[in-house]
Design a binder for these strands. Structure first.
Length: 531
RNA sequence: GCCCCGUUAGUCUAGUGGUCAGGACACGGCCCUCUCAAGGCUGGGACAGGAGUUCAACUCUCCUACGGGGCACCA
């Protein structure tokens, strides 16, 4: 039986788009807290100064709220265990680290990264687990202190036991045994004075009275280090629950290269938040009566972690769409309309979208014919897929034709450049695209047309750079990656060809019918034509 | 390479020694129907392989194979 009061947390790192995996783990934590009448907290793990941004943090909070999760304590709502942003708790970690050094459970390490790299390379070559070799572990405490005080750069490492075993009592798997010789003397405090995940996580979980750590399986191998820390501090560890990892179609850990992972993408796509949450509740989990549609309240009420299945679930967009459709059909017609209007109304890009669409519209009803490219997730280039083959549709004499593989490489280059660009602004987008065009050596118009068709799904759109800016990074990149896989996948390509062929046949047939209609044969002539 | 975890159909899953291995998505067929959806009915499709324990293994144990994760001054 769980300790009371149950306290659990979600601890996202604000280093990118709000991730679907974060929502997945958050769902189980929030439901677990609700189930036991406990608290659910949100803590921001922003100890990586180089990658953490406030924009990402804001987006993560926004997206978690969007799918309907809320928390009892967190950086935005406060609480008794604050601050809830690790970057604001530096002093806490430093003092805890000091006590560890005093207890000889941790030590300063002055090794250079060059030495460490070399050491790992050697270990790799010798086919043994990479592990810090303990070079600085037995420095005399006074010498260590003196070197630190003289200003020499150092990190603090955990002094792991060098023999024996560590047993992780995972709630879903039973005891998982590790040979301590496999476990590294993990860095706890970085040269910049900030803690690593391992230290901050353990200290905060203890200080915030977390009773159950429900997190992704990728953490299971570092749990022995965490256990060692609890022991070094003399604290009681929480219950550990490692959830399976969401997977791509090829079973690898879900990644943005192979799947839309941003919650913003799903929101933009018109997925209902309650359907999204419901779908996540189906990943690695099933209700006792095998019901597949349920609300968060039902999920929380019936949640039983023993029912979690450990095989990594593939994130199947098809089933999400089906589920979303079920929710849509279950609404009253009135609320479907209102939800739809709200979907557009709550979108904050009215101004920019209108600006681009305005000079092209002829009536209010015409607006959406132009604006549709800004909404929804993936778009099917369908009939216009030929434009994805750079130069192949060009009428210009000097056109450079890339063909399938070249076009694919071009799109990959475009994606890489856009990903590397921190500012999602028209000018930056333009620079990235022009650079890719130059790199590929194709005509500007042809290169940009390919991108336009990939991103908009058709060869007409407002100015491309502004359009991509308004469509947004997450959706734009998903659409571009879809173009890459279309170009790279024989079967998808065949489908596209078959589709285009069918369209062509239909057009031919229509043409024949129309021609027949304007060249009347004698028995078809009407009295009016004879007059 | 080393360590850890996992393995029921293309996918999500039920199943905790005795079931005709159940449901859902997707796919095929039929019905409904002015189209398309939706809906109804229906079909094909799974216990990774091998040993062992047992009267009896999808279920327990071991080995193999395959998949995944981890091995950072990232989380």
């Amino acid at each position: 039986m769980p300790r009371t009061p149950v306290r659990v947390r979600i601890a996202p790192s604000p280093t990118g788009d709000p991730h679907v995996g974060t929502a997945y783990i958050a769902l189980f934590n929030a439901a677990f807290a609700r189930h036991h009448g406990g608290q659910f907290l949100l803590r921001i793990e922003d100890t990586d100064q180089k990658r953490s941004t406030r924009a990402s943090e804001d987006a993560i909070l926004r997206s978690l709220k969007w799918i309907g999760l809320d928390w009892d304590e967190g950086p935005d709502v406060g609480g008794p265990c604050g601050p809830y942003r690790q970057s604001e708790r530096g002093e806490i970690y430093r003092s805890h680290c000091d006590t560890l050094i005093e207890k000889a459970k941790a030590y300063r390490c002055f090794c250079t990264s060059e030495r460490l790299d070399q050491m790992r390379a050697e270990q790799r070559a010798a086919k043994v687990t990479s592990r810090y070799d303990g070079h600085c572990r037995h420095l005399d405490p006074e010498v260590s202190r003196a070197r630190a005080e003289s200003g020499e750069a150092f990190v603090v490492r955990l002094a792991m036991p060098t023999d024996g075993e560590s047993v992780v009592p995972d709630a879903l798997r039973g005891p998982v045994v590790y040979d301590n010789r496999q476990i590294d003397d993990q860095v706890l405090l970085k040269t910049d004075g900030l803690p690593t995940y391992h230290l901050a996580n353990v200290v905060d979980d203890h200080l915030m009275a977390i009773t159950h750590v429900i997190r992704a399986e990728e953490w299971i191998n570092s749990t022995p280090k965490h256990l060692a820390l609890y022991q070094a501090f003399g604290w009681e560890p929480p219950v550990f629950v490692h959830m399976p990892l969401l997977r791509n179609e090829d079973k690898s850990k879900i990644s943005k290269r192979k799947n839309p992972t941003s919650l913003e993408f799903y929101q933009r796509s018109g997925i209902l938040p309650e359907a999204m949450l419901n779908f996540l509740g189906l990943m690695g989990y099933s209700m006792e009566d095998e019901r597949e549609q349920f609300t968060f309240a039902e999920f929380a009420r019936e949640l039983d972690l023993a029912r979690v299945s450990l095989g990594g679930p593939v994130f199947d967009l098809k089933k999400l769409d089906w589920l979303n459709g079920m929710y849509l059909r279950a609404m009253t017609p009135e609320s479907l309309a209102l939800r739809t209007f709200a979907y557009y109304r709550e979108d904050d890009r009215h101004g920019p979208v209108s600006l681009l669409v305005q000079e092209r519209v002829t009536s209010l009803a015409d607006y959406m014919d132009h604006a549709d490219i800004f909404y929804g997730g993936q778009r099917n280039p369908g009939l216009f897929g030929r434009h994805l083959l750079i130069g192949c549709t060009s009428r210009k004499k000097n056109a450079v034709r890339l063909g399938r593989h070249g076009s694919r490489a071009y799109f990959e280059d475009v994606i890489a450049r856009l990903e590397a660009e921190p500012n999602w602004e028209p000018a930056a987008i333009e620079a990235a695209l022009r650079a890719a065009v130059t790199q590929a050596g194709v005509l500007v118009g042809d290169g940009l047309m390919a991108v336009r068709v990939a991103v908009c799904g058709r060869p007409t759109s407002p100015p491309l750079f502004e359009t991509m800016h308004v469509i947004g990074r997450a959706v734009t990149l998903v659409r571009l990656r879809a173009a890459v896989s279309l170009l790279g996948d024989e079967r998808m390509l065949q489908d596209a060809i078959a589709h285009a062929q069918a369209e062509l046949d239909a057009v031919r047939e229509a043409l024949q019918v129309a021609e027949a209609a304007v060249t009347p044969t004698p028995h078809q002539s009407s009295p009016a034509a004879e007059a």
